[in-house]
Computed example of a mutant assay.
Amino acid sequence: MSNHIENFPLGKELTLNDSSNPLTIHTTSLSLTKQNHQIIECRLTFQVTPELYHRIDTEKLFNLKPEVRAPMSGGNFLPSGDIQIETTLQPDLLPQLLEKASTAEEAANYLLQLCQQPENPLTNKLLSTESWLCLSVKQQQPNGEVGYNTFWNYLNPSTINDPEATSEELSAGIVNFFQEWTQANLAEATQNATSEFLEGISSIFNELVDETFSDTEEDTTTNQSIFTAIVNFFESDQWQFVKIPETSALRLLFRGENGQWTCYAQAREEQRQFVFYSICPVKAPENKRLAITEFITRANYGMIMGNFEFDFDDGEIRYKTSIDVKEDNLSLALIKPIAYANVMTMDEYLPGIMAVIESEVEVKEAILRIEG
């Protein structure tokens, strides 16, 4: 799936709003990213003086919280020379912009026009610093480029909100950012510091992708929507999730002791069924698929709640649990064991799967290490 980027050079002053004082920046370009002829992202790039960057840094404008910043690369910023900042518009505001623009030039001109209009809380939200997520901060110096990327450059909000995004894309972004952060902070990071970092990322990720279903009410009849029930459960259990558009399914992220992976919670309304999947974060390469087939067969023998599934064509491995409630209501108490038995099983068997894929461990030995 290829993306097409339409770029429009600006070179004009743009005044943005924050909680205290207006912020005037020198814009350099605005770009729109199209996927299958549909606009999925708007980026704004601008330059600021080191003094103005100090304010942005101190006040954490453009969502520049410490926990989303990757380590500095190339040195430190100099007190002279402009600093370039690239941002992306929050996905939930993109439709508002696209009501007035279908090209990068039209989008740029619309933002400039908003600056000249009277205060309007609705339209001026596009001009709020909180509405833009910083992707990178760079400064060109005599010895090269200095700066840093942010979490959103590794896992772009447009990817998070894309229902066709694969589990590999989501996992890779998080893992790459965390690895860079860990390598730079390992010498000084304590367990508490790492825990605070993960909590910060989790909170920010939750703010961006967690769907709000405040109008959803608990229905105690057997006609209750399966989807309503699973949304209520994952909200009350504080999971981070994304509702997949035009489906009755949620995409979730889960971190176990042995890894992190994508999960899917699916409602089959007509059949009155709830299905939960854990998608293994790695696919089996062709030369390991026979071995993984044996591993899955051995692992499934004796399974009570759920089973592993293996797509021999593309190497995807997943664990499935489900429940049928044709004559009953899908309560939170019924959902919980389906979800947690699933992720606990994937977490338990993941080291064995990785051992078979990445080393020459015999399948039987890998199973014995898990089951004893």
Rank of each mutant, 00 (worst) to 15 (best):
M1R: 10
M1I: 06
L10A: 04
T15S: 08
N17A: 10
S19C: 06
P22R: 09
L30W: 06
L32N: 14
Q35F: 09
I40K: 11
E41C: 12
F46G: 08
Q47G: 00
P50W: 08
E51L: 09
E51C: 00
D57E: 14
A70Q: 07
P71W: 01
L89S: 05
Q90L: 10
L94T: 02
L97R: 07
S102F: 04
A107D: 11
Q113Y: 09
Q117R: 14
E119Q: 13
L122H: 03
T123W: 09
K125G: 01
K125H: 00
L126S: 08
E130C: 00
S136A: 13
Q140A: 07
E145F: 03
T150D: 09
F151C: 02
S158D: 04
T159W: 00
D162C: 08
E164N: 10
A165Y: 05
G173P: 01
I174F: 11
V175T: 12
A187E: 15
A187L: 15
N192C: 00
L198H: 04
E199K: 14
G200C: 08
F205P: 00
F205T: 13
D210A: 14
D210H: 15
D215L: 04
E217M: 06
S225E: 08
I230D: 01
V231N: 05
N232I: 03
F234T: 03
W239H: 10
I244S: 14
P245M: 11
R251Q: 09
R255K: 09
E257R: 13
T262E: 13
Q266I: 13
A267D: 09
Q271H: 05
C280R: 06
P281E: 07
P281S: 07
A284V: 05
P285W: 12
R289P: 04
A291C: 03
R298N: 12
Y301I: 10
M303A: 12
D311M: 06
F312A: 05
F312R: 02
F312N: 00
D313N: 12
D314M: 07
I317C: 07
I317Q: 07
T321C: 11
S322Y: 05
L330I: 05
L332W: 05
L334R: 13
K336P: 01
P337Y: 10
V343L: 09
T345G: 01
L350Y: 15
E358D: 13
V363S: 06
A366H: 12
E371S: 13
